[in-house]
Design a protein around this nucleic acid. Sequence first.
DNA 1: CTAGGGTTAG
Length: 464
Amino acid sequence: MERFLYSLLTNAASSNLGAITQQTHSLLLTTGHLIRSIRLFNTLLRSYSLGGSPQKAFSLYNQLQSLYCFHSSSSSSLQLPSFDSFSYTFLINAATHASSLPIGTQFQGRGIKAGFHSHVYVQTAALNMYAAAGVWSDALQVFDEMPDRNSVSWNVLITGLVRWGELEYARSLFDEMPEKNVVTWTGMIDGHVRIGRFGEGLSLFQRMVCCENMKPSEITILALMPAVSGLKDMRVCRLVHCYAEKRGLIAFDIRVANSVIDTYAKCGCIESASRFFEDLMERKNLVSWTTIITGLAMHGFGEEAVERFDRMEKAGWKPNRVTFLSVFNACSHGGLVDQGLKFLEKMVNEYQILPDIKHYGCLVDMLARLGRLEEAENLALGIPTEIANVVVWRTLLGACSFHDNVEMAERVTRKIMEMERGYGGDYVLMHNIFVGAGRFGDAEKFRKLMHQRNAIKLPGQSAI
DNA sequence: CTAGGGTTAG
């Protein structure tokens, strides 16, 4: 029985099935297993923590804790198992997932009282919590006071620093770390890539593979690929692709395959992206389709993108909001306005997806860039105020400038000013529109207004 | 038991 429940919970955690976890919880309560086996209790904690309901982990703890209080005050003969290192590890993890530092700190304290001051797993969980929250004073205190650290302890700190952009600090720890593993190297690559130091990210990858003889994982490739895209180097793209292929990472993880599609497209070779995409055959998933549509859109191949969308639907895939955004973008860049509007109808009516601000932005751009300004303006006016933003109106203002519609430009600028007054580019654009229309007095007014309001000018934008 | 980024407007 215990073994069965255990495997049920382990599966529930890995496949994210909150309902199973919950049902097993009730079952354990009624059968009394929960208060007899700390192992089952811990597994349940872990399931809640991983399954996105950390609050339930806390209440489960509270339930058992109050049982303890009750039993210690009465002279019951029932022997209750006590919390162990696993319990505190999972409870602190639940607090990390709930982004609740106060609760986590409490569990850390209780873990220490229970004698786990020097326990690697418990303390690493605490370290992870502080690192995830970017509270470096506490993170470093835990790290410094750990009598034994393992590679996970180091990696938690390094990857935490990386996520918060503290690359210099991460780097010094990296150099100091005795035995780096694939997670360490991946973390450092990721750290360089995410702040745009693509060349250094790539060098680290080279060092990792060639000098250190370390085997990159699928995550390493996923972390590296944006660097390849950033460098726009087809040679490197092919090299990394071949390497991933040879190491079996593409067959192993569809995410790697999808990032290869994306990177070929971003390196400027939509043909390679498309060929690789087609070669995936039946392994393609929704993200693969979305990625190739995005790539085709980037390269202005509207018709081809639409063709992929249709094929995708025929293959039985249900497009999501990202897929629709991609195809709108393709229609926008390919000048396929009426197709785009049909896709909007399909999204809302057939798939019951409400457009979000990015969808609106894309569609407004699509209409506006072909000069269908009234339709674009009406669409923009129909955006629910909760999600409206200045970017959409700015797009429209750009189109008004391009198509010399001064009256609409004035209306649009008024809208923009209701939302944001401190962006210099808007004043510059409106000024230039007035100049183009020969309305020099109005242009001058805008120039003055910009200085009055001390609006920030953009780099690369003329300062009137 | 503890660590690591698939696609997303202008």
